[in-house]
Amino acid sequence: MVRLGGISIYLGTLIGLLVVWWSGGFIDAHGQPLGVEQEYEIWGVTVGGLAFFLIGLADDLFSLSPVTRLMLQMTVASLAWMVGVNIEFLTIPFVGLVYVGWLSLPITVVWLVGMANAINWIDGLDGLAAGVSGIAALVMLVVSLQMDQPAAALIAAALAGGALGFLRYNFNPAQIFMGDGGSYFLGFTLAAVGVIGLVKTTVVTSVLMPYIILAVPILDMSAVILDRLRHGKSPFIADQRHLHHRLLQAGLSQRLTVLFIYSLTLWVGSLALAFSGLPSGLIYALGATGLLGYTSWKALKHAK
């Protein structure tokens, strides 16, 4: 099975952005050209995504050690921070927005590297990572437009096209895999879109959006790391502790497991739409809740 499908995801995203650029340049919702800083952010995220893709591609081809991968990822994330992809605020419960100052660098690096690996870790079943990333990118597109963040919206739109176009050939039974190159690219780009489009604003709900939209891979990775450490295992050693593994062990089929996790992703995304103030956002959230309830019922029927 070919594991270089990440090439098509990256090229699909890049070509989408280039077509818009060649058609007259990047514009906002009012038809006005984006500023130099916003264009710089678009290409900065795209180049950073290329670097993460190449790290994953090298791992696919040469099996890099976990420490080597991590060091390379931290280096690229630090460079991304230097060109403006940085987290300047955090939301503290009962306090509100807090300016993080010099902690911006380590927080940004942890976010970018963590999300790249979170998407990589859920890439364990046909179509799972591509579908979750595509859904998350579509939600980020809508939320970015709602928050008047055109640069982030453009990247999210291109990324959604790249991921969902690839899903046509990656859904069970898969004809091709994305490999580490594709999953690292998807994870980094989603995290970076969240930073330049939402976290940079000073609205509490906006700062929370990326963490809500990407809650499924974030919580899966966090739970797995804590479980491994609790049992005295290395957090870098692969095992069968992920959500999709547990659902398979419960008796669900591959397709039903993937569809259930899609529903979870769509549900948390619908909550983000509601919190963003999107018209009828609450209706979308209720609809997604119904879909999640239906897939949960189907999952329970098939569980052992």
Rank of each mutant, 00 (worst) to 15 (best):
L103W: 13
G24K: 00
G251T: 04
V83I: 15
A151K: 03
Q175E: 15
D60S: 09
V143R: 00
A51K: 01
Y169R: 11
P150L: 07
W81C: 11
A136S: 15
H242M: 11
H30V: 07
V2C: 06
L248S: 04
L50E: 08
W21E: 03
P93K: 10
A158G: 11
V139M: 09
L300E: 05
Q73K: 10
G56Q: 02
Q146P: 08
L271S: 01
G84C: 10
G49E: 03
V85I: 14
T205E: 14
L54M: 13
S104C: 13
G6K: 06
A80Y: 01
F94C: 09
Y10W: 11
I135T: 06
G162D: 10
H245D: 12
L190R: 04
G162N: 11
D220Y: 06
G96A: 13
T202A: 15
L154Q: 09
E39R: 12
G101L: 10
Y284K: 10
D227H: 14
G6A: 13
H245Q: 15
L154G: 02
S263R: 01
P217M: 03
S104Y: 07
A152L: 01
G187W: 06
D180Y: 02
S104P: 12
H244G: 01
L286R: 10
L159Q: 02
T189R: 02
L256G: 07
I237E: 15
A174M: 02
R168T: 10
V142D: 03
W102M: 14
L17S: 09
V83K: 10
I42Q: 02
V204H: 08
L64P: 06
M178K: 00
G281S: 12
H30F: 13
V47A: 15
Q73H: 14
A274I: 06
G293F: 02
I155C: 01
F53A: 04
V100M: 07
V258K: 05
P33F: 12
A151E: 05
T201A: 09
S65C: 08
T202W: 06
W43D: 02
G16E: 04
A192N: 03
V76T: 13
Q254D: 10
G165D: 07
V132L: 01
G161P: 02
G44C: 02
Q254R: 10
H30E: 15
L145H: 05
L164S: 08
L97R: 12
M1Y: 02
I176E: 00
K301L: 15
Q146Y: 08
F53I: 06
D148F: 08
G165K: 07
N86S: 12
